[in-house]
């Protein structure tokens, strides 16, 4: 592997998805402003970004549902959007909002969706039991969609995306709006798919999700990729290893008088002070003597990287 080719991008043509110089504007505003992406077979790639960063637009561009203003896309070796329809034969999609067919039962949803891929009814029927088992919906085959919980609907949408046994699966914020149990179940299922050799392209704004699942990720902000790499690598590259969060009325004053001088960086968000340091020992020792302040000492994580790179102000 040469220096000019750090990700082995040109060493084989087996990449699942390749996008370069991707651009898309809406009424003069650039939503996707020159993105380069590469997905390798069998990996989980996370596209991380605040609301409105351009995640869903990027996904729609990759599926060929909208045309880019500039750039090139190739999905499973086929040029997109020119041959997007053919590429979608080998792709599964879990959209952000559930669009299961409310006029059908659980099983009928899978059956009808399989037909859109031109699959024979017998073939789809033979796949359904395994998919229902995968989704944990075996006993609910005949249930109406309206009677399913949010987590069940997500799992059924995931099962539906697998009806054509795809090589590449797109998931647009797959666990938004789910309770912790339901999220863990989805993650476990996605790991199973990775173990089967599927490639996953995931968008999310949940750091823990990205950190748990993604082999590599890109942080997207205002239509641009501002950092890319493995989660651990990004943390090591962009942020100090130790974080001390300090809460309480006097946190600001404590930071000015003591914390700031002993940290590499110090940030205040509301009542909370975040101190980033290579060695948090002196901070913690001092805080142990402050009765009015509570604190949490932890390792830096992806959220710290994300907030450092995209800022703390609200995005909506």
């Amino acid at each position: 592997m040469t220096r000019a080719d750090p990700f082995g991008m040109n060493s084989d043509n087996a990449s699942c998805l390749r996008a370069s110089g991707l651009r898309k504007s809406y009424s003069g505003q650039e939503v996707v402003a020159g993105i380069d992406l590469e997905l390798r077979p069998g990996e989980c790639f996370g596209l991380l970004g605040p609301n409105g960063a351009g995640k869903t637009t990027t996904l729609r561009l990759c599926l060929g549902l909208i045309d880019p203003d500039g750039g090139r896309i190739e999905v499973l070796g086929l040029p997109v959007p020119e041959r997007a329809r053919e590429a979608r034969r080998r792709v599964g999609v879990v959209p952000q909002a559930d669009n299961l067919d409310p006029d059908f039962t659980v099983e009928e949803n899978l059956l009808v969706y399989g037909r859109y891929f031109g699959l024979a009814a017998a073939e789809v029927r033979s796949r359904i039991p395994a998919l229902l088992e995968f989704a944990g919906l075996g006993p609910r085959a005949d249930s109406r969609i309206q009677t399913l919980s949010g987590g069940m609907k997500r799992r059924l949408t995931l099962a539906r995306a697998l009806i054509n046994d795809p090589d590449l699966i797109f998931l647009d914020e797959p666990t938004t709006g789910l309770d912790p149990q339901a999220r863990h179940l989805i993650w476990e299922r996605l790991r199973r798919l990775l173990a089967q050799g599927k490639t996953i392209f995931l968008t999310t704004h949940f750091m823990d999700e990205a950190e748990r699942l993604a082999h590599r990720l890109a942080i997207l902000d205002r239509g641009r990729i501002i950092a890319q790499g493995a989660p651990r690598e990004l943390i090591a590259r962009h942020i100090e290893p130790q974080v001390v969060e300090v809460y309480g009325d006097g946190a600001g004053r404590w930071a000015r008088e003591f914390g700031r001088a002993r940290s590499v960086r110090c940030e205040q968000a509301g009542e909370t002070v975040f101190c980033y340091a290579r060695d948090a020992g002196p901070l913690v020792q001092n805080l142990d003597q402050q009765d009015a302040l509570r604190y949490l000492h932890r390792q830096a994580n992806l959220e710290d990287v994300f907030l450092k790179l995209t800022g703390r102000e609200l995005r909506d």
């Binding site: 979608r88 299961l100 859109y116 031109g118």
Partner: peptide
């Protein structure tokens, strides 16, 4: 939308 995520235009 769901149909267009499959190979149908």
């Amino acid at each position: 939308d769901a149909i267009m995520n499959a190979p149908v235009t």
